[in-house]
Amino acid sequence: MDTSDSYTRFIEPIEGQMIGVIWRVLRDADDSDDALQNALTKIWSKRRAVFSHPNPKALILRICINCAYDSLRRRVKHRRDQQVLRERVTDQSGQSGASGGDVLVEDELRQQIMDQIVVLPRKQAVAALMRLVDRMPYADIAQALGCSETTARVHVTRGRTRLRERLSHLNPTGGGNAP
């Protein structure tokens, strides 16, 4: 298969979307750069399959989201490890850590949501990110995930429901305390 014009046909029209979705998940220049690099590596290694897919653009976006998701998981794990380490150090030194603000600021809220997204099952997480962060149509999500549109909706809905449950303390109507 000649892939020489594949970039113009399949990637160029969604360059901005690829960049946007990775950035919105990660919000870090280095991590976004790495995630895009990983995504391009995967696209390259499976280029024939990717470019002959029924919906190459959706699949490419799924690969991007997958890579951003992987990077996010690593980052969350790293942060948790660091947190544990800091707590140990704090315990040993007998000093109390800096107290968090009373108001949950936007980035903290986003971070908490992302922390919970990474513990969702992968398909739910990826579908939720595609729908909620990238606003992809269900038809495209379905094609990218290789499932029916109904299944895609189920993934998104379950993902969102789990997020709401796990973050119920953030919702005034969710049974927890309001921030």
Partner: peptide, 12 residues
């Protein structure tokens, strides 16, 4: 819509 939904919308 919840706080989470709104946050995700803003994120988008």
């Amino acid at each position: 819509k919840t706080v989470i939904d709104h946050a995700l919308e803003r994120s988008a």
